Amino acid sequence: MSHEPLTLQGPRIRLRPWREEDRAAFAAMNADAEVMRYFASPLDRAGSDGFMDRINAHQAEHGFSFWAIERHAEPGAIGLCGLARVPWEERFTPAVEIGWRLATAHQRQGYAEEAARITLAHGFGPLELPEIVAFTVADNLRSWGLMERLGMKRDGGFEHPRLPEGHPKRPHMLYRLTRRDWIDARLGGG
Rank of each mutant, 00 (worst) to 15 (best):
F39G: 00
A40H: 13
S41C: 10
S41H: 15
L43S: 09
L43E: 06
L43P: 01
D44Y: 13
R45W: 11
R45D: 00
A46G: 08
A46L: 08
G47M: 06
G47C: 06
G47Y: 09
G47V: 12
S48R: 08
S48V: 09
D49C: 13
D49L: 14
D49A: 13
D49G: 12
G50E: 08
G50H: 13
G50M: 11
F51C: 01
F51Q: 11
M52R: 15
D53H: 14
D53S: 15
D53V: 14
R54N: 03
R54I: 01
R54A: 07
I55L: 12
N56P: 00
N56R: 15
A57F: 06
A57C: 09
Q59E: 02
A60L: 06
A60G: 14
E61K: 15
E61L: 14
H62V: 04
G63K: 10
G63Y: 04
G63C: 03
G63D: 01
S65P: 09
S65I: 08
F66H: 13
F66G: 00
F66L: 14
F66R: 14
W67M: 02
W67D: 01
I69K: 04
I69P: 02
I69S: 02
R71E: 05
R71I: 04
H72F: 08
H72S: 04
H72M: 03
H72V: 10
H72E: 00
A73Q: 05
A73F: 03
E74Q: 15
E74R: 15
E74Y: 10
E74L: 14
P75K: 12
G76M: 09
A77I: 10
A77Q: 11
A77H: 10
A77N: 03
I78A: 01
I78K: 09
I78C: 02
I78F: 09
G79H: 06
G79R: 05
G79W: 06
L80V: 10
L80Y: 12
L80W: 10
C81M: 03
C81W: 05
C81A: 11
G82R: 05
G82I: 06
L83P: 05
L83T: 06
A84G: 12
A84L: 13
A84C: 06
A84D: 02
A84H: 12
R85C: 03
R85K: 13
V86D: 01
V86R: 03
W88S: 05
E89C: 09
E89H: 12
E89G: 05
E89W: 04
E90L: 05
E90F: 11
E90D: 10
R91T: 10
R91L: 02
R91I: 08
F92C: 01
F92R: 05
F92I: 06
F92Q: 02
T93H: 07
T93Y: 10
